[in-house]
């Protein structure tokens, strides 16, 4: 915009210049970028010392996503007049697009373009600064998927930096083995994960979280007995852990011990009230003990918190089963329909 204003002043002095500028702008607005380039090149020939002419030419190349050709024109514009924030922003963006993130940073700082600057900082390995800039940009555009993506990446890299420091310690401390175990578990390498977890426990038997992770490994492999043993140990080490109580309750239910499951799940619910997953399991376990009225209330609490999730789908199914057993056909039908609707929408 600024470049266009400057050009307007220049063209009053040079009529031919004015014609080319007007033709270039018209072509650009019409999407005819080749003609715009041709016209703006003529403008640069006629007025080589005019920064705005170079900016406009660079801007057209940028619009064409021809970053390589945009860069020299924008650089030249800033040599002529370094106080053009728009040109800095465009040059920074072009440099970033070409992979020159460190070079882009000072230009983007000049332009105060937090969003692109955040990305450039991230690409340059300056992750903490990137997080700050991306979070600032996210305040303006809270749901921007690109910003969310890059912020997620930035946080992930920060985590990795910390984990790399931990994993790099020699000999590997228990926490490092725990971390490696978690990484292997996330990658689906169950045997390797178990080895790391066991090694961690050998170094520090009271480490929190490892028995929980081992229990989840066993549960995922269908070993309910092993899972119960590990969840029970985690619950012993961390009696205030809602997660341990939840998992222990859930596996007890799978093992057919509904009353024991109810006790653990109640404890989990007291430790962390209102967790839909725990309320769902507690509802299932309560139903399995035959207390259908209490189970119904618990499942209703789930649905107050969750409406369209997998948890909600399961809650509707459990409610349908309860109403079926209670002989409340219309309620059962309604819940079945809601269950089926959610199921289909999630497929």
């Amino acid at each position: 915009m600024i470049a266009e204003v400057v050009l307007v002043l220049a063209l009053q002095a040079m009529p031919e210049l004015g014609r080319h500028v007007e033709a270039g702008l018209k072509a650009k607005r019409a999407g005819d970028l080749e003609t715009a380039i041709s016209e703006f090149k003529r403008v640069v020939e006629l007025a080589p010392g005019l920064a705005a002419a170079h900016v406009n030419l660079g801007a057209v190349y940028l619009e064409k996503k021809d970053y390589g050709n945009a860069i020299p024109w924008l650089r030249r514009a800033l040599e002529i007049n370094p106080d053009l924030p728009g040109a800095h922003g465009m040059l920074g963006a072009a440099l970033l697009a070409q992979g020159y993130a460190p070079e882009a940073i000072p230009h983007l700082e000049q332009a105060r373009a937090d969003d692109v600057l955040g990305v450039a900082l991230l690409e340059s390995g300056r992750v903490r600064e990137a997080v700050d800039k991306l979070e600032a940009a996210l305040l303006q555009r809270p749901d921007d998927p690109d910003l969310l993506y890059y912020l997620g990446q930035a946080h992930g890299r920060l985590s990795k930096q910390v984990f790399d420091r931990l994993a790099g310690q020699s000999p590997a401390p228990a926490r490092a083995r725990q971390l490696l175990g978690e990484a292997q578990a996330a990658a689906g390498n169950r045997d390797a994960a178990e080895q790391h977890f066991r090694a961690a426990l050998a170094l520090r038997a009271d480490l929190r979280g490892i028995h929980l992770a081992l229990g989840e490994l066993y549960l995922g492999a269908g070993d309910y007995e092993g899972a119960e043993r590990e969840f029970r140990e985690e619950a012993r080490l961390a009696p205030g852990s809602a997660a341990a109580a939840h998992e222990l309750g859930a596996v007890l239910l799978k093992r057919g011990r509904a009353r024991d499951a109810v006790a653990e799940l109640r404890r989990a619910s007291e430790l962390r009230p209102g967790m839909p997953e725990t309320l769902l399991e507690l509802g299932k376990a309560t139903a399995a003990t035959g207390d259908l009225a209490s189970a119904e209330k618990l499942l209703r609490q789930v649905l107050e918190r969750e409406r369209a999730s997998e948890v909600a789908e399961s809650a509707h199914f459990q409610l349908a089963e309860i109403y079926r057993k209670l002989g409340r056909a219309a309620d059962a039908d309604r819940e079945r329909k809601l269950f089926q609707e959610l199921r289909k929408s999630r497929q």
Binding site: A221, G222, D223, Y224, E225, K254, R255, G256, A258, A288
Partner: peptide
Amino acid sequence: SLATGLAELTAR
């Protein structure tokens, strides 16, 4: 399956 123990016996 849960109450009869069959779930645990067949989960794997």
